[in-house]
């Protein structure tokens, strides 16, 4: 049986697509049979990454955002990429409460939420080139034992 599945989305960096992106990823992951909470966690993380790309990556210019998702066994791997201005200091950007745009009332919690809701996250960014956020989350933690044992 095939146990991987992939999809890719490319869409404009406009705020109405934040909802589209998280719902599309949520729909794709349903084949892993996630709980409502797992879906909500992944949706929140995707929303944070896409919002960052729109506000910080492109500073509201309309360009393209790419999302790539892969399901492999019970893990969803998500990449959110923009080709915008990039982040000078990734470590600082990931600190809780840090925001480069306090005037926009950003809470500074985008990366903290991604870290809290996903198992792993890494950020690769180059000023002037763009930012790539990679996240992963295992679906069905603590639920998988009996099926394998009973076989």
């Amino acid at each position: 049986m095939r146990d991987t599945n992939e999809m890719e989305l490319v869409f404009d960096s406009i705020s109405v697509n934040e909802g589209f992106a998280r719902v599309a990823v949520a729909a794709f992951m349903t084949q892993l049979n996630p709980t409502l909470e797992e879906v909500a966690d992944v949706k929140t993380a995707v929303s944070e990454a896409v919002t960052n790309a729109i506000i910080h990556g492109y500073e509201k210019e309309v360009k393209k955002i790419r999302i790539h998702c892969q399901l492999k066994e019970q893990v969803i791997y998500i990449e959110v990429e923009d080709y915008g201005k990039g982040i000078e200091n990734v470590k600082q950007a990931m600190e809780p409460m840090y925001t480069s745009k306090p005037e926009l009332e950003r809470s500074g919690m985008g990366f903290s939420f991604m870290e809290a809701f996903m198992d792993e996250i890494s950020v690769v960014s180059e000023p002037g080139k763009g930012t790539l956020v990679k996240m992963q989350r295992k679906i069905g933690k603590g639920r998988e034992l009996w099926t394998t044992q009973s076989l």
């Binding site: 929140t44 944070e48 919002t51 926009l104 009332e105 950003r106 809470s107 500074g108 985008g110």
Partner: peptide, 13 residues
């Protein structure tokens, strides 16, 4: 049914 950190920003503001 859904809120992300932008919602937290609105509340803090």
């Amino acid at each position: 049914n859904f809120m992300d950190s932008s919602g937290i920003g609105v509340i803090m503001g």
